[in-house]
């Protein structure tokens, strides 16, 4: 086994390579001492090298997340050893575990409270798409149904290596963003995610109209028995509504409008 001594100038060149300005170049001879970069690159470098994840565990995957932070894998090499318990102080949410319907309102609230620019990593099969519990009546099939997700890490649970690979992907994504086009510097900012509500089943306020159209159509959605396909193979299509149903929807809308007005 050989451990060749590193050649420091080479090492340095290698390390700074990704920050060099794309067009401006430094004269030969100076390039070991002077570095020209862009604001974006510097800015992204500093952002991605000190992400503060939220101390937030949901299920089994959280245990692997803690293992990643422990001495063997040492998350602090990525500049993220300070896990903040408060969403106000963190900019990365690692959704580590099964998201249940009962928990979703809390998660969305936490997400809304996080400082921008904020990122979400869905760690594990469960947070990515429901995982082995996808069919469960209290399980949300993926946190991306409610908050935008930046990186998905499959695996059940993802090993610490897989999580770190996901974090590196996250860094890649940060690198592609630019100060000039970022949402969070725009005047209107980026929108809050409306908090889902626990009704007879959980519902997303953004989908209220869609839900009303179905439930009021007189043919409430019954679960399919047998077969895997949505009706006619067309996913997500609404069924044709009868006259009665349309009238009822109109009434419901009126009621809602009246309530808003009064």
């Amino acid at each position: 086994m050989s451990l060749a001594p590193p050649n420091f100038p080479d090492l340095k060149t290698g390390q700074v390579e990704s920050y060099l300005h794309p067009s401006v170049s430094v004269p030969e001879g100076l390039n070991n001492n002077v570095l020209v970069t862009t604001v974006d690159r510097l800015y992204n470098w500093s952002r991605r090298s000190s992400m503060w994840p939220l101390l937030f565990g949901l299920a089994c995957c959280a245990i692997e997340m803690i293992a990643t932070a422990s001495s063997r894998f040492d998350l602090s090499r990525f500049g993220m050893e300070v896990m903040r318990p408060s969403p106000r102080q963190s900019d990365l949410m690692i959704v580590s575990g099964t998201v249940t319907k009962k928990m979703v309102p809390a998660i969305v609230r936490i997400y809304n409270q996080m400082a921008e620019p904020r990122y979400v990593i869905a760690m594990g099969a469960c947070a990515t798409g429901g995982g082995p519990f996808k069919e469960g009546y209290n399980v949300v099939s993926g946190i991306d149904k409610y908050v935008p997700v930046d990186v998905y890490i499959p695996g059940c649970p993802p090993t610490p290596e897989a999580l770190m690979f996901g974090l590196m992907k996250m860094h890649q994504k940060v690198d592609t963003q630019s100060v000039t086009t970022a949402d969070w510097y725009k005047r209107e900012g980026s929108a809050f995610v409306p908090v889902p509500q626990l009704g007879p089943d959980i519902f997303d306020p953004r989908q209220a109209d869609l839900i009303r159209a179905e439930t009021m159509s007189g043919e409430a959605v019954e679960a399919d028995t047998g077969g895997g396909r949505a009706e006619g193979g067309v996913p997500g299509g609404l069924r044709n509504l009868g006259e009665k149903a349309k009238a009822r929807i109109a009434q419901a809308k009126e009621r809602a409008a009246a309530r808003l007005a009064g």
Binding site: D144, V151, T159
Partner: peptide
Amino acid sequence: DAELASFERFPHL
């Protein structure tokens, strides 16, 4: 191979 993380979920995963 555990390095499967991706930016998109469907259909990538």
